[in-house]
Nucleic acid binder design. Structure first.
Lengths: 161, 161
DNA sequence: CCGAAAACGTTAGTGGAACGAACGTTGACG
DNA sequence: CGTCAACGTTCGTTCCACTAACGTTTTCGG
């Protein structure tokens, strides 16, 4: 033994973390979200040169039709300040069109293009695969449960915010 | 009607988000974690002038005894670069002591103080309350389930990292 | 009908968290 | 003894949620 590192190593090399720390839901959430975000970001970047916000915007356009940037902000939860950049990226790639609203010249009307629709289908597939990886340890019933629980918690804290 | 904003408003004022977006586990995780982090940070700051890192370090010291900064990094998951600041804050408040290791002058040995122990007890209570708020919509069995699921997912992705 | 207030898109910037690079000091080891 | 690794530390980067302010355009109350 070079020296007794002991006490932190459960004899298999990994440093030990106190249970009361490891069991805290807030900590589990934070840590898992870091991994999840990394997985999704890297996956989207590499498989489709995309970011998760692209998906949010395109899906919102596809499912609810064209809208102003402010509307899209509301639908997706992306801040209007950040929406600018996202739409620039999407417009650059030809996935959306940004046109001034003739009826209200403060607004832009954002429309999804045919290419955008195709891209969205691709993103949906990529995300399906990535979520399969994310939720790998859970069986279908448990995945549903997990999503259920998350949804209930989020709903509660969204109303209360 | 001033104008038909329609389509995004389920007739109760809240903008509508596509289901495929709302159901993605990664998105639920991100959003919930934002709320959770905010709840915990604000709660700790206001009730105990503390940050969550403080809890991690103090709990690790209490449960596994003194250690070097590197050991604490391993136990808590805090980067050694960030550990410096955390320990400064804790030492300033008299919750830990930072003393050079006589047996290895590269290291500092960090020890929790009596005050630190008291503070940790307080933090534990505050965190209990905050988690009660965080998990409010779930009954005890569901909370256990939730923690179970999170743990399994995190374990899987920690090994695979 | 006019002036104040609000909404819109946009730019710039803040604060926190996770993480990497590099450096001087000190110990381990062939 | 010389090389290499570990330690604490400083500095910097990147990403995300979020705020502030501004010019333009529209709405609305008096």
């Amino acid at each position: 033994m070079t020296r007794a590192e002991a006490a932190d190593m459960p004899d298999d090399g990994a440093p030990r973390t106190p249970d009361r720390l490891r069991r805290r839901a807030s900590r589990l959430l934070s840590q898992l979200t870091v991994r999840s975000d990394r997985l999704i970001n890297e996956g989207l970047a590499q498989a489709a040169d995309a970011r998760k916000w692209h998906y949010a915007v395109l899906a919102s356009l596809q499912d609810f039709g064209p809208g102003s940037q402010a509307t899209l902000s509301g639908r997706t939860g992306i801040y209007r300040s950040d929406m600018v950049g996202v739409l620039n990226e999407l417009a650059e790639r030809g996935f959306v069109e940004r046109a001034p609203d003739p009826g209200d010249r403060r607004r832009n009307i954002i429309t999804i293009s045919a290419e955008g629709r195709r891209h969205l289908r691709r993103l949906d597939k990529v995300l399906d695969d990535l979520h399969d990886e994310l939720l790998a340890p859970l069986n279908p019933a448990e995945r549903d449960q997990f999503v259920q629980l998350l949804t209930r918690l989020l709903d509660h804290h969204a109303r209360t915010s």
